[in-house]
Amino acid sequence: MTRQPAFPAPGILPCQSIEALIAAGDISADSPFLPDQVQPASLDLRLGARVWRVRASFLPGTGRTVKERLAAVAMHQLDLTGGVVLEKGCVYIAELQERMRLPAGISARANPKSSTGRVDVFVRLLTDHGAAFDDVASGYDGPLYVEIAPQTFSILVRAGTRLNQMRLKAGDPPRLSVRSVGVDLTGALAGFRARRHAGVVDLDHEDGHDPHDFWEPLEPRHGELLLDPGEFYILASKEAVEIPVLEAAEMTPIDPAVGEFRVHYAGFFDPGFGTAEAGGLGSKGVLEVRSHETPFLLEDGQTVARLVYEPLTERPSRLYGEGGSHYQRQGLKLSKHFRLW
C-alpha cells in the first residue's frame, strides 16, 4: 500500500518535512546530504557525475525515460568529476545526485537557484515519463535530470554544483494572493547589462570574479531604460519584497501582451525573505530580464512580474537568511560569484 503522509491542509512543505522525507528514504542521493542543502521551504539539487551535450532540448513524454530519449539526441558525454566548461549557446542534460520516491499526495516543482538565474543560465528539471519541465508528479519514483543552457556566459561546473532547487507540496495549495512587482529606475545606477564576450564563470567560486569583466553598468534617463533585443539585464524591484513566515512565493512572468520581455528565471522566495524577524526588512527582488524580438522601453514602476503566495503546511524550523545569506537585505545586486561593484 502506498504511504500517504497526513498534513492538516494542502501547502508547501517546510524544511523539517523535507528532512523527514530524506530520513525516510523518500528523497535519496548518491552522496550524503549537506547541512545547508535543505532551505526553509526548498531543497537544493546537485549535479551528478555525467552530462551530455545534446543537439536539441526535449521532453521524454509519458512513454519514455530520459535515458531512452538521450540515446537519440546526445552528441557526446562529459565527466563532471573534475570540472567541465559548458559553452554558451549549447544545450546539455546532466544527471542529478538526488532521486525521488515521493509518497502519494506529495508532488514537487523545481526552479533555478537565484545565483543561476543571475548569470543567465537557463535550467529545467526533467523526470522519466515527464510531459512538462520542472514538475514532479505525485508518487514519482525515479531519477532526476536537469537541462542546462547557458545563454550569455560559458560556465564551469562540477559534480556537486547546485544549479536548481525543488519545492515539495502536499496536495494542491491555494493561491493566497498575487502581487505585482514593478521595476526601479530611479537611482543613479539602474542596473547591469551583461557583456557578450566575457570569460567563463566558475559557479562554485564565490566572490571570485571581477564584475567589470562581465557587466556594464546602466544609468537611467528620465526614469526609462531601453531594452535591446537579445541582451540580458539585472534590475531591481521597485517595492521591497516580504515573504511571511507561514508562506512561500514564486515570481512568475507577466502576460506577454504587457511587454516583449521575460523576467526572473529564478522564481522561488522562501519564508522569512525580507522580514524583520529574519533580519531582512527592506529586501528588494532582483530581476533577471531579457528582451525578445523588438526593443522595449521600460519605465520606472512598470509592472514586470507577479509574486504568487502559497501557504506552508506549518511554520518552518528556520527562516531564510538565518545564519547568513548573500541575498537577504539586498538591493540591486549581482550574483554571489562577483565581487562588489
Rank of each mutant, 00 (worst) to 15 (best):
Q328W: 03
Y320W: 08
L281V: 11
S335C: 03
A9Y: 10
A266S: 14
Q151N: 10
A170Y: 11
E250S: 14
F7H: 07
G130S: 09
A149P: 00
H76Y: 11
N164K: 03
A94C: 05
N164H: 10
G301F: 07
R315H: 14
G139P: 12
R329I: 10
R221W: 07
F268K: 08
I12W: 00
R99I: 09
V146E: 07
W52E: 04
V178K: 15
I243L: 04
T313E: 11
V245M: 12
V73W: 09
L125H: 06
F192W: 14
V136T: 12
R158I: 03
Q37A: 04
C90A: 13
H264K: 09
S237N: 02
D44M: 04
D36I: 06
T81K: 13
C15E: 05
L102R: 10
P112L: 06
S335K: 02
G11R: 06
A190Y: 04
L297Y: 00
V286G: 02
Y140S: 13
Y327F: 11
R101N: 15
Y265K: 08
E322G: 01
H212T: 14
H222E: 12
F214Q: 01
A248S: 14
L185T: 01
K169L: 15
A305V: 06
A266L: 05
D30R: 15
L78P: 00
D184M: 01
F269N: 05
